[in-house]
Simulated scan of single mutants.
Amino acid sequence: MKKTIALAAALSMLLLAAGCDSEEQKQINAQNIARAKDNATRYIEEKYGFIPSVTNATLERQYGMFGSMPMSEVLVEMEHQGKSFSVYIDGQTENTEGADSYQAEEIHAAVEAYVRERISDIYELTILNSKVTSSFDPIEEDCKYLFTPYYDGGNLKEVLSDAACSIVGICTNTDLSLCSAEAYAELLGQERSTITLYAARSAQGAKQIMPCMNRYYYNKYEKLAVYADTICIMKQDQTEIRQYTLGQTGNIFYYVEGNSPDKAHIRLLDHQQTAEWMSDSAKRVQIPQKSYEVETDQEGFVYLYIPVSELPENQQEMRIIGRSYNTKRQEYCYYESSYVIIGEYCVIETYKSNLSPPEQIAITIQES
């Protein structure tokens, strides 16, 4: 017991120490910040020919298991003639090797014009990130749209080749199967740069896609299939076209991994049928309001798109319980499935089977 208490105390002290810089380190931090401000000022003067005002500066920190430690890079916030922008630059040495957001709006406008020349019915377009990736939460959002080369109106490829950009466009009435990375070479000069185009099923559906782009599931394209029937992903000389054919049962749409909606059958169960398959552990939750059984003879995920209007009123308190039959062991296993509310639909990702088909999955939606 004493050893446990001592270990906990030592760990607490370690966490405290990790979260606080020593006096010596604080002095180093101050020197790095001061030098970074001077570096940023000279960087902007060399690049644009004017001297900006410094409004704020935040030191980069690297997070680890037991806290964070200061780095030497600094995000310097600046202003010139009413325009605010940022410079990310190292403060350990005197240098003018930075990245800035001063031309971000101009570069974004050029990117949009480039895409619209090739696809006229772009509903919305955005750049999600660019060169600098920060680990420090207070400055992370401000490090997205930073570029190093000067944009002169004709060197878009050079500017973007220095930045790993994720460009996302929402289209309507467009056949994306005709797209190719070669046509967008100016925007794909960097190996990690991508262009993702969504062909919306309707004008209403187009409004639901972009709000998802900054969330953790934006690259789980199947979750957006209820709103987009085709998605084109381009990387340098690679073009991938994904097309989604949905099945429908009543008001519920569904997508079967492998794109064969006829490989799945969905039906609504009554409370008695649900009670029959629930295990003792599953019965610890309340009686379900609705249960759906998904039967498929194909391995892989099945995605359900259930109208929010059919869900319990308290959507934030939902739990989704699933049951999958193991055909090898001749027994059922129970699990909690993931879901996310996207616009007008609740999207449920069922259990992925590594078992021999056929397989049955039941999804139960209920308030906790």
Rank of each mutant, 00 (worst) to 15 (best):
110 A>H: 01
73 E>A: 10
33 I>R: 13
29 N>W: 03
40 A>W: 05
58 T>F: 03
40 A>F: 11
79 E>Y: 05
24 E>L: 07
47 K>M: 15
39 N>Q: 14
34 A>R: 01
60 E>V: 04
35 R>L: 15
90 D>E: 08
58 T>K: 11
46 E>A: 14
94 E>W: 03
26 K>R: 15
97 E>V: 00
99 A>R: 01
115 V>P: 02
40 A>C: 11
35 R>E: 15
47 K>L: 15
56 N>Q: 12
120 S>M: 04
94 E>I: 08
73 E>F: 01
85 F>E: 03
106 E>F: 04
94 E>Y: 04
85 F>A: 07
86 S>E: 11
55 T>H: 09
69 M>W: 11
42 R>S: 15
53 S>C: 08
96 T>K: 12
65 M>F: 12
110 A>T: 00
117 E>T: 01
120 S>K: 15
73 E>K: 11
98 G>Y: 02
101 S>N: 07
97 E>H: 04
87 V>C: 07
75 L>S: 03
63 Y>K: 05
56 N>W: 09
44 I>Y: 14
37 K>Q: 13
81 Q>M: 09
73 E>L: 02
57 A>Y: 03
112 E>L: 10
71 M>Y: 04
65 M>A: 13
69 M>T: 14
102 Y>S: 05
84 S>M: 12
27 Q>E: 12
57 A>F: 02
29 N>Y: 05
41 T>M: 12
47 K>P: 12
84 S>I: 07
97 E>F: 01
40 A>Y: 08
30 A>H: 09
111 V>N: 02
90 D>H: 02
